[in-house]
Design a protein around this nucleic acid. Structure first.
Lengths: 401, 401
DNA sequence: TTATTTAATTTGACTTACAAATTAAAATGA
DNA sequence: TCATTTTAATTTGTAAGTCAAATTAAATAA
């Protein structure tokens, strides 16, 4: 129990160093309220353990005051390697980061099929990780942790996948399976949650303790950071924003229920109605058809506009519901901007603002953050970074005891 | 900083004692992981400060083993008095509790008008508190804290009321005003939040760290306990479940927007359509008219049924949305059962269960907890109890330092 | 060079938690 | 009845931790 304070100090300081990038001890002391003496003790431990390193201040900063100069501390990149994997419909996207978060390599490869068995998927991931490590002359065994983002319903704590569109089986211990096959600790979570982790660790949510991330891919996802921590729900199936109901007996969703948000805004929902728009080729590939539809809407085709406008209105309504429930500081809309421009439009955000409970206080900030597949992979890597840091701290905790 | 561990120990132990009711030191040690030695030290402090008392074990329990008998500790009721006030449309309901949570007196009185100025309301509360204390021969000055629940949008941290149906003014520092006028610390919050606090401290949520409370009065309210703490949002206007949108361009709500949940399930929403039901007297008082409508529905009147059924379906949809977002362990439906039976029905809860994302795991438990106005007041008192405990602990923390 | 200033470290006092030893208070058994 | 056993609570002594203050380190200013 006495060790608790030291654990607390270690966690606080490592987090603060990571957040700051580079920061001298005296500022750490000021920021955390931990005395300078203790900061010295704990950071000395980090230094000797190789988690952190000293760097000379590379400042052309004007505050070059007199007195002994401050010495910046930073996370030591070489301390660990982590990998982030994003599993999407047709491909795997991977990034390799050092412990500081620097990107060392990337790898993208097509999946042999969009839906595979757990074993097949794990095998493909293993090969991709091998190639990824190879890009910088390392081996999979050199990696300290791998974060994996997958669409579907995931219980992150035990790496259990209730269901995923990428898997042919339900209720799979994918985390354990991967850890076993790769010989490296693997951490798996819903992809939208990982985007939220990424925004929290090195994105727009860095300075916020309560914010939401809404992702749009083929489905609509949600990640919630509440009280400074990712909230995952109690059965691993929370944050199913895409399946909140926005219409009684509404449009049919691919989940089999009616009136889901997703059934109005997802690509397949748009295409369902697009056949009524003149000049649409029903045989083109889906992405192309969505693009055609959006073009037609922009060009003023009334039918196309009606489809796209309704998607926007419904999306605004869903966002307003989130605000009315959470009253967050910030909402981050994350996705590939191109394809979902119509959902990120000022008109949609305006409609949302008009649909929330009105108080004499500014509504939450809404920002759009463009995320390609590699960015999603970075989100997964951020999660791995989190977990690996935790493991490193635990090792210190035990070593001391 | 060294004092931090002691603060932690004190908070943990006092909370655990309150939660358990009566508990011997050795169990406290087991439950919290704090060593028996430290438990002795801290509880000795509580005893000498009068926060806690020893009671001989009143057990006809069969486990009367040999050895030195355990001595139970419990919160000392006489340590503090707290009051809970529920402000509703037409009346004030108050309860007086001792520090243990025992109800010592109650008081109900009509408000002179349903909407009053902050000063008038404060004056009426002061008088009611005076009478309440008088019931047990005490004075308002003997009270350590007063919790107040009010409908509307409240920033609990600074006792600031953005808006309330009971107040003629917006943006009122009602907490400060009351504290000043009564000479006793007053803590104010949205009424649904206080029900959640009450369920967490001595209700059905005692053993849960993540649950939701949905309240139904004239409006629909929500209280969220997430990660063991009440989540209030960042601007004081979260948990506005009643104004989440369930229909695009739907029914008009009294908030001025369209498609709010409340606009389908609240009493005024039912009455709006009730004029079409045969045999309805448009001039009876609202409560009576709602009752007539529900009677008609039960009797099989098709129009009445249609109104009531839709309310149920919409309510189920709203609940499903909460589950899809939060994935809570438990949902507590709190309200006066009589009037809202149709929303608490098995049919509604079944519909909800069918509208959530399906996983191979049991859906969250849904329980109905009947809450009269005095119960709401108990919720407010529970909040005061929380706050007064916190103040007592802070006093200990400082005294030690 | 020396004085000054500021950062980082070391020192020594003090607080805290805990394991182990001790004391307390009961039931059991001879 | 009285020693023995058993279990709870307290006391004791030690180790670990934090922090203020003193000291050392490393720069600038005079």
């Amino acid at each position: 129990m006495a060790v608790m304070q030291r654990e607390y100090g270690r966690r606080t300081l490592l987090r603060e160093i990571r957040k700051a990038g580079r920061i001298p001890r005296i500022e750490l002391s000021g920021l955390t309220g931990i005395s300078r003496a203790t900061v010295t003790t704990i950071t000395a431990e980090f230094l000797s353990d190789g988690l952190v390193e000293e760097v000379s201040r590379d400042e052309g900063e004007p505050d070059s005051r007199r007195g002994r100069p401050r010495v910046d501390l930073k996370i030591r990149g070489a301390a660990h390697l982590v990998v982030g994997v994003k599993i999407s419909h047709h491909k795997l996207s991977l990034v390799l980061l050092d412990f500081e978060g620097e990107q060392l390599a990337t790898e993208e490869c097509d999946l042999s099929r969009p839906v595979s068995s757990p074993e097949e998927l794990a095998a493909e991931i293993r090969q991709a990780v091998s190639r990824l490590a190879g890009h910088i002359g390392r081996e999979p065994g050199d990696i300290s942790g791998i974060g994996i983002g997958i669409a579907g319903i995931v219980e992150a704590n035990d790496g259990f996948v209730h269901w995923s569109p990428s898997l042919s089986a339900r209720n799979v211990e994918l985390g354990g399976l991967l850890t076993g096959m790769l010989g490296v600790p693997c951490f798996i979570d819903n992809d939208a949650n990982l985007v939220a982790v990424a925004e929290h660790t090195f994105g727009l949510g860095r300075d916020h303790s309560d914010f939401l991330v809404v992702t749009i891919e083929s489905g609509v996802g949600l990640g919630m950071v509440i009280g400074g921590a990712l909230y995952r729900g109690t059965r691993g199936c929370g944050a199913e924003f895409g399946h909140t109901k926005v219409q009684l007996n509404g449009a049919l969703c691919r989940c089999g229920q009616r009136g889901c948000l997703e059934a109005y805004v997802a690509d397949y929902a748009l295409l369902r109605e697009a056949t009524l728009v003149s000049g649409q080729d029903a045989h083109a590939d889906p992405a192309k058809r969505v693009e055609n539809l959006l073009d037609a809407a922009r060009a003023g085709d009334a039918t196309a506009r009606s489809i796209v406008d309704r998607a926007g209105q419904i999306f605004a309504m869903g966002l307003a519901n989130l605000v009315n429930i959470f009253d967050p500081e910030l909402i981050i809309l994350a996705g590939e901007q191109m394809q979902f421009d119509h959902l990120y439009s000022d008109a949609v955000i305006d409609t949302m603002r008009k649909s929330i409970v009105q108080v004499d206080k500014a509504p939450p900030e809404v920002v759009v953050h463009k995320w390609g597949d590699l960015m999603w992979a970075r989100g997964a890597a951020a999660y791995a970074l989190d977990k690996v840091s935790e493991m490193a701290l635990e090792r210190l905790d035990e070593h001391a005891a």
